[in-house]
Amino acid sequence: MRVATFGYQTWGHKTLQAAIDSGHDVVLAVTHPRSDHVYETIWSDSVEDLARANGIPVHLAKRPDDALLAAVTEAAPDIIIANNWRTWLPREVYDWPKFGTLNLHDSLLPKFTGFSPVIWAVISGAEQVGLTAHRMDEGLDTGDVLLQSAVPIRPDDTGTDLVRATIDLIPDLLTESLRLIESGEATWTPQNLDDRTFFHKRTEGDSRIDWRWPAEAIERFVRALSDPYPNAYTYFRGQRLRILEASVSRCVYGGTPGRVFIREGKGMVIVAGADAYLGQGRGLVIERVRTDDGVEHNADEFFPHGGGYLTDEA
């Protein structure tokens, strides 16, 4: 088949490489121009560079326009494959090819529709993440599903671990999807949109810790926002702290959320939970932090003793 890809960053790069390796004729790679946005400099393997290195025509676009439609028309693909294409596509683009557009979304749809699905999945306590190949339609991640592949979330997995794991699912899922479509064996399953969960784009403020959350939720939050993502952060005596490592305490601690309390092991216990005053929940043991100067500190050195509060404002 003649294949065009629409994609950006490492997801688009991996998808383009998988399309090249599949043996199909890749006739066009559409991608976004480079960006300095914090979330777009992470996982920044270049689709454009890979395409040019393989002699594949490239079209750069920030959003769909007449020039993009002209590029698709000239390339005449049998199918478009999209992965991490960041803007809405009109029907005249996604329905142009004979087999339409196959979108790859890094969640198990209809769960975690939208943005940063792996990060939100870890934060929310999901049991697994995955990759879905589905037909693009007029909605956002709402089209009929062809294939899915899942990865379990283990207790110590970070968001970074799981992003890598879902990216690694791309080649096999894409190759099998193209085989099924070309052979006429594809079976498309409508999503039950009543089960849909939809998450928004993340911004810096979404990484701020709320000490009214239970310690178990904050521990997931810290793991989800592992390097190279903007880390979970809080403030201590006017200074921002990024929390790099944390765990749930062995003992139950009560008091006021955010209180810097007492050492446990090699870390410092922070009282957590909206009902902490009842003394029925665990605390969060902070083990490693990073200050705004980029220096990392063991928590038992940064907090030589208990006292004071972690807050959500400087």
Rank of each mutant, 00 (worst) to 15 (best):
H134T: 04
H134V: 04
H134Y: 07
R135H: 05
R135V: 01
R135I: 04
R135A: 03
D137Q: 08
E138P: 07
G139I: 10
L140P: 01
L140S: 11
D141V: 03
D141C: 11
G143A: 07
D144T: 05
L146R: 03
L146I: 05
L146V: 05
L146A: 03
L147Q: 01
Q148M: 11
S149L: 00
A150V: 00
A150Y: 00
P152Q: 10
P152R: 09
I153H: 00
R154G: 15
R154N: 14
T158D: 03
T158L: 08
G159V: 02
T160H: 11
D161E: 08
D161K: 01
V163Q: 09
V163H: 12
V163F: 12
R164K: 14
A165H: 03
T166Y: 00
I167K: 00
D168F: 06
D168A: 13
L169A: 01
L169P: 02
I170W: 09
P171D: 04
D172Y: 08
L173F: 07
L174S: 01
L178I: 04
L178C: 08
L180P: 02
L180H: 02
G184R: 01
E185A: 13
E185N: 12
T187H: 10
T187P: 02
W188L: 06
W188V: 02
P190L: 07
Q191M: 12
N192Q: 12
L193C: 11
D194M: 13
R196E: 14
T197G: 07
T197E: 07
T197Q: 07
F199S: 08
H200L: 15
H200R: 15
R202W: 10
T203C: 09
E204G: 15
D206L: 09
S207A: 14
R208V: 13
I209T: 00
I209P: 02
I209E: 02
D210G: 04
W211A: 04
R212N: 15
R212H: 14
W213P: 03
P214G: 10
P214Y: 07
E216L: 08
I218G: 05
I218E: 09
I218C: 11
R220I: 01
R223K: 12
R223V: 03
A224N: 06
L225D: 11
S226M: 09
D227P: 15
Y229N: 09
Y229K: 07
P230E: 08
A232Q: 07
Y233A: 13
T234E: 08
R237Q: 15
R237W: 10
G238N: 09
Q239W: 15
R242L: 14
I243C: 04
I243G: 01
L244H: 04
L244T: 05
S247F: 08
